[in-house]
């Protein structure tokens, strides 16, 4: 159980929990970031904040402070989850 803010660039993880009370998390859920979804920390901005994460075929940026309460289950080599099951 690791906060998203502590992921290293290039590292994958599976979303364990976020905080639905918060507007940032509500927006992320609307974008499809739901528990069980695999995401990747793509990079940090040159000044270390904000972060860019990739999930469900999109890259989204969010601030470090807000990433601290988004909890991730880090899996070493987990490929990014396909949003659609293969036919």
């Amino acid at each position: 159980m690791t906060p998203l803010s502590q992921l290293l660039p290039g590292q994958y993880g599976k979303l364990t929990s976020l905080n639905p009370e918060r507007s940032v998390d509500q927006r992320l859920m609307a974008l499809g970031l739901l528990p069980g979804m695999v995401l990747k920390l793509v990079r940090k901005a040159p000044l270390g904040d904000p972060l860019a994460i990739e999930f469900a075929g999109q890259v989204v940026s969010l601030r470090l402070t807000e990433a601290q309460t988004i909890i991730i289950d880090v899996a070493a080599d987990c490929p990014i989850q396909r949003p659609r099951p293969q036919a």
Partner: peptide, 10 residues
């Protein structure tokens, strides 16, 4: 005003 989440699609 309620602040907006800074969640930005790249």
């Amino acid at each position: 005003v309620k602040p907006q989440p800074f969640v930005l699609e790249l």
